[in-house]
Write a protein that binds this DNA or RNA. Sequence first.
RNA 1: GCACCCGUAGUUCAAUUGGAUAGAAUGACAGAUUCCGAUUCUGUUGGUUGUGGGUUCGAGUCCCGCCGGGUGCACCA
Length: 603
Amino acid sequence: MVFEQEIKAAVVQAFERIYGKSLDPQSVVCQSTRKEFPGDITVVVFGLAKMAGQSPDAVGKALGEALPELNPAILACNFVKGFLNIELRNEFWVDYYKNTLGAPGFFLHHKADADSNRPVLVEYSSPNTNKPLHLGHIRNNLLGYSVAELLKAVGWPVMKVNLVNDRGIHICKSMLAWQRSGLGETPASGGLKGDHLVGKYYVEFDRMYKAQIDELVSRGIGEEDAKRDAPVMQEAREMLRKWESGDAEVIELWKKMNGWVYEGFARTYDLLGVDFDRTYYESEMYLLGKAVVDEGLAKGVFFKKSDGSVWVDLTDEGLDQKLLLRGDGTSVYITQDLGTAIKRFEETSFSRLIYVVGNEQDYHFKVLKLILKKMGYPWWDSLYHLSYNMVDLPSGKMKSREGTVVDADDLMQEMINEAGRITRELGKIENFESEEAEQLYKSIGLGALKYFILKVDPEKRMLFNPAESIDFNGHTGPFIQYTHARIRSVIRKASAYDELRSFRDFDLGKYADRMNNLEREAVKCILRFTDELEDAAERFSPAIIANYVYELAKVFNQFYHECPIVDLQQPEASLFRLRICFDVAEVISKCMSFLGIRVPEKM
RNA sequence: GCACCCGUAGUUCAAUUGGAUAGAAUGACAGAUUCCGAUUCUGUUGGUUGUGGGUUCGAGUCCCGCCGGGUGCACCA
């Protein structure tokens, strides 16, 4: 919080002077003052009263009288029911504003941390190559991208990594169905995006598989057996065996079909606006786990059962026993994850490894960390599972079995179309080139989607309402984009006047004593940017920034509504207000860029 | 059955991580504007924070018990 350290120091000083007891500045609890009370910073005095051995009332009043003398920035204090509100001078705010926002590099924050040369790895997206991306992936990608951007903004070196699940039985299923169709369909021939084409055959496999199961069951075979013995399933398993043994024909088909999928994914990522510094493939990583198993056995952390399978016992941590290596010597998912984590630490010495993965894997990551802890890796606690819940739609839950999965490409396109429809209806863009208009529809449609998803706490299951998200009023992305565009427009118009063109060089101090409450609120809200940014980055929470930028936009709207920005009778007020407008727009565009949302200059 | 997550205005979400009178948006209602049951303003309404206990100066937040919703408990990934 702005000025928090100084206030704490002053409180400590006053406390010592009055009660003769020393005080740890950490034990002073500060918060920003609620709007309904006069003041900027509030000290909670209950704890101090206990230490002083007097009533909160007495302590609060005594401190309130002593504080203004201890720091010249403090104008006055008022005390209400255990809360000491401290009011700072206008001059303080303006000085602070000048020295921070005005200073070069304000928007490029750098954390002076000894650890900050060690990278933070953010793993997100992690798609399977057997089907296209869906709504759930959108939440994943948006979270991963924006957490990475937030960490960068506070000065961490960040690596965005994608771990593609490109091998396994499920991949073989779509390969098999494609092969059996005998059509030789390709993205070029079928006009289908590569990932959708492969997804189509994955569904086709499932159809064949179910038909065969039904057939077997109708001949009196038990369902369990039917599932295991269905011919297509046996073929798929055979194909997986061939893949693992390096069969040239299977590998070639695998490469070809995965290639189609990657082209498809690239287009989806591009439209969604996310990117990666490095992409890993499970086909290159899945053998890493074996070395881990040997290591764990050597350290006596793992044990072997009579059938040759390897386990770890986590009962002392309140969990159960966990399999790490099958009896036949093949590794399982968690073993591979152990291997990759260790390898990544060896390669990068990451200070943090953040996994953006759905909450159905909460248990998995808990186990992963505990095994690393047991194996004696001191960095085990640097792993962080950024867990997120599902996204529902007004039409109901997404169930892959019922075919109600919402495709990411379709959804994005619908959002863009809807943005176009609404924008044309409002008829504000007659003078736009068609190319420019298309860009605008994209910004609005995708901005609506991104903002709506990111503003919600990831842990919570959420409902995405497309119609509500794209409203130009309300707590939405388009509202913030629109506010930004209006500010830019005000500034463009003001720049037509010679006497207002120099607002960026205006000496803010000249106006400090005339600053009104709204202007003061606006300045305070702008200055909160630094705190919110650090908070959001520390807690890996884009929602904090999303909610802050909305508040800022509302403050501007109020400001705009009640103070004339351009008033040639009062050039100094105009210059001051333009300067505020300009910085509000800068902060909005900065915050939105952390969320991966574009803010148009005009709309 | 066991474990973990969630439960806040009619609805969708907040609440500075234990702080003040639980806030926004949207809906509904009233008024203003008016080619319009549209749009845009202004105002009002709306809550025993699922429930019952506990901890303390102070609980939506922490602990225990219920109720409801979700997920996990594979030699799948």
